[in-house]
Design a protein around this nucleic acid. Structure first.
Length: 739
DNA sequence: CCTTGTGGTAAGGGTAATCGGTGCTC
DNA sequence: TGAGCACCGATTACCCTTACCACAAG
């Protein structure tokens, strides 16, 4: 409740500030169906239509465009046939041997499907009347996904049944496990329902194919309408006014101070307010802020959820008790009870790894574990890597270790990291702010990872560094004779006044790293769970927990035997109610571009703040994801940088801003096909080959539009890459970085 | 009472690894 | 037509920093 919903509330609460104005700006822009977003396009379109009037070559253009439709249909038919064949093949394989299917079981893929199932189920509970509509929505991604999902669900169904059978056997042994099998039944029923829905979806499928065809026609019609729009100049003027207003507001805002922020700062300013509110609310838990909602939902839930509900209750009980403990800090910590409840959790969840080392273990055993690799360390990364290693990133081990020693030497001369508190050093690291030439996939280079204070930030811990951190902690325990409870004490040193400053000493072992980073890393290394995959039941637990208690990740993490970061990250992945999977739709692409463009535009009026080396454009992905509603922030970010931004940027051969220039030139040129373009003279500072290469990259992410005519493709892309964003980006980049 | 230092935590931007689908070639 | 392979996109897990808070010591 605290996360998404509270954000929604907050937005409405802040209606007096400029946020409202900015959001209304955005609303206005979006309400105009993207037209308002593209003032420069309108200007260009006007120019272009004038050009058309002057020349009499329209016939050629339109004929070439009409060819696009034929291609689309042919391609669609071809794909259709292929898919049917594949499906047949898959079906026969599935019917062949059930046990094979079980053997194939992968906990990860299981998780995926079941999450969807669970989501579907929730939806059904809440909106039973809308059942069929929901199915249609979940399927709206098209034919491929329907078949794909169906195949996967069939597999899962069989697996589920077998697992269910096992659960029944176990249930005779233990009463608690009975509840798990009940939950299994619920899941099974969900599967049945989903399969029923699949039947319906088969029928929907035909319509979808038809729709996609008519969509192409609709797009073309829409494009023509847009071109004929007469009121272009007024739109341009209004948007320019809006932007000017925005500029003025920005000045006022800077003068007023950080009172309210736009989408670009939504995560920061607003987030802070939210945090404060959240804290207050969390303090009031006992009274049940938001508990009312949950109760209603819970009472509405049918009895078959009892199994899972109960397991949730166990966690919640644990949460309540832990909160009481927090309140009565001076009370003795009841280790036995905690361990017992964790044990129950582990049994209920079937999570063998959930038994965290609450007893701390003795230092020697920890050492052994660490050395034997029982405590999971991230050294597998290097050897396991199949994929092409990205050039810089983590860097090779030798390289990083050499660098580390070098840095260590450097820092030792200047003294240990006494000044390493985040406030003292924050925003002092001047990493590459030149967005265009930032190697998109590499992260900061080693040199750039070293800040003015000589501390390394934004660079992953190497295996050697991990070992050093572990060694330092264990050393501290040995030297101070902390014994069996040592690790526990160090990781919770605040509870032990005698060693409250232990991190000063431990952090000194890696003087080139901020103490905070060492602290963080040590917690990860010693606290992360061994079982990294998530079960559908765990997903459901997180949802229910968050619904009731908000972001108290630590408590939940303790109960689940996982690290709180990972619990939190998992929540980030599952929190969107309308989350979509699979291929991105054109609408999603367009929306992503619109929101990123808006964010970049707003940034043009902001100070250019120096951030740490891991950040690139500092785009507010969370805010964008919330608006997009169908993809998580991480997915948006990844889509943007991995696919929509050219890999040529990483190679230093291309700039992000060149995308805009290229498209503007192509739009002006109004060529019918690629051959008509004089690529060599398109951009002054880029070769023809490069321009063509980048064009081909852009076309790759046009989805259905890939089969359209060249001119139509330019139209689609110019709508995505609004030319006025070029100015905004240039304006932002030309500003001096503010620490 | 104020300031400073420290541990602790949530939030958020970003990366690495893996899996499965797709398309190309033979 | 189908097998084999490489590539690419989607997904998941994980990383790391920052901002902020609470609390204790000076």
């Amino acid at each position: 409740m605290v996360g998404g919903k509270q954000r929604g509330e907050k937005k409405t609460k802040d209606e007096d500030g400029s946020l409202k104005e900015e959001s209304s700006l955005k609303d206005r822009l979006l309400a105009s169906g993207g037209e308002g977003l593209t003032p420069s396009i309108e200007i260009m379109k006007k120019k272009r239509s004038e050009k058309h009037e002057a020349s009499a070559e329209d016939v050629g253009v339109s004929s070439s465009r009409s060819e696009g439709n034929v291609d689309v249909n042919n391609a669609a038919d071809k794909n259709e046939r292929k898919k049917k064949k594949k499906e047949k093949k898959k079906k026969s394989e599935r019917n062949g041997d059930c046990s094979e299917v079980v053997a194939v079981s992968s906990s990860l893929s299981e998780g995926n499907v079941d999450v969807n199932n669970a989501e579907d189920k929730n939806e059904k509970k809440k909106k039973k009347s809308k059942r069929h509509e929901d199915v249609a929505v979940s399927l709206s991604e098209g034919n491929i996904d329907v078949n794909y999902a169906r195949g996967r669900n069939e597999k899962k169904e069989r697996k589920r049944k077998l697992e269910h059978g096992n659960n029944e056997k176990e249930s005779q042994v233990a009463g608690k496990k009975n509840k798990v099998s009940e939950a299994g039944e619920v899941l099974e029923e969900t599967h049945m329902r989903i399969e029923d829905n699949m039947g319906l979806q088969k029928n929907v499928h035909v319509d979808l194919v038809r729709n996609s065809e008519s969509e192409v026609r609709r797009d073309r019609k829409k494009n023509r309408k847009e071109k004929n729009r007469e009121d272009r100049s007024s739109t341009v003027a209004s948007v320019v006014n809006i932007l000017d207003d925005n500029r003025r507001e920005e000045v006022v805002r800077v003068q007023k101070g950080p009172e309210s922020e736009g989408i670009a700062n939504m995560n920061k300013g607003e987030g802070r307010d939210r945090k404060k509110e959240k804290k207050k609310k969390q303090k009031k838990y006992g009274g049940g802020g938001g508990g009312g909602d949950t109760e209603v939902i819970e009472s509405a839930a049918d009895g078959k959820d009892a199994g899972r509900e109960e397991s949730t209750e166990i966690v919640q009980d644990k949460v309540e008790s832990s909160k009481k403990e927090k309140k009565k800090r001076k009370k003795k910590h009841n280790v036995v009870q905690e361990a017992a409840s964790i044990q129950i959790m582990a049994e209920t969840m079937g999570n063998q790894s959930s038994v965290i080392e609450s007893d701390g273990g003795n230092s020697s055993s920890i050492k052994n574990k660490a050395r034997e690799g029982k405590l999971k360390v991230n050294d597998e990364g290097g050897s396991k890597r199949k994929k092409k290693a990205k050039p810089l990133g983590n860097g090779s081990k030798e390289k990083s270790s050499k660098k580390a020693t070098q840095m260590k030497k450097d820092v030792e001369t200047t003294g240990p990291s006494e000044k390493s508190s985040s406030k003292a050093t924050s925003k002092r690291v001047s990493f590459c702010e030149d967005v265009e030439v930032f190697p998109s996939s590499d992260g900061p280079s080693d040199e750039k990872a070293v800040g003015e204070d000589g501390l390394v930030r934004g660079k992953r811990f190497s295996h050697e560094e991990d070992e050093m951190v572990k060694e330092a902690v264990l050393n501290y325990i040995d030297v101070h004779g902390l014994g069996a409870e040592g690790l526990n004490m160090v990781l919770n040193c605040k509870k032990h006044p005698a060693i409250v400053q232990c991190w000063k000493e431990i952090g000194a072992a890696l003087p080139w790293r901020p103490r905070q980073s060492v602290y963080y890393r040590a917690h990860i290394l010693f606290e992360r769970g061994q079982n990294s995959s998530w079960t559908p039941e765990e997903y459901e637990l997180i949802r229910k927990f968050h619904e009731k208690h908000g972001s108290d990740w630590k408590t939940l993490a303790e109960a689940l035997g996982k690290h709180r970061f990972h619990v939190k990250d998992t929540w980030r992945r599952i929190k969107l109610i309308n989350m979509k999977k699979g291929k991105w739709s054109q609408d999603e692409y367009q929306s992503l571009f619109d929101f990123v463009n808006l964010d970049l535009r707003l940034k043009a009026f902001e100070e250019r703040k120096t951030k740490h080396g891991m950040l690139r454009d500092n785009i507010s992905w969370t805010a964008i994801s919330e608006r997009l509603e169908t993809r998580t922030d991480a997915l948006c970010c990844q889509k943007w940088y991995d696919q929509l931004t050219s890999p040529l940027v990483a190679e230093g051969k291309w700039l992000d801003t060149d995308d805009y220039r290229l498209l503007m030139e192509l739009y002006d040129l109004d060529a019918c096909c690629m051959e008509d373009v004089d690529w060599d003279n398109l951009l002054e500072h880029r070769s023809g080959d490069l321009c063509r290469k980048r064009w081909n990259q852009m076309v790759k992410h046009l989805g259905d539009h890939r089969n359209k005519s060249f001119a139509d493709q330019v139209d689609v892309l110019i709508k995505r890459y609004c030319p006025d964003v070029l100015e905004a980006r240039e304006a932002y980049n030309s500003k001096p970085a503010v620490p």
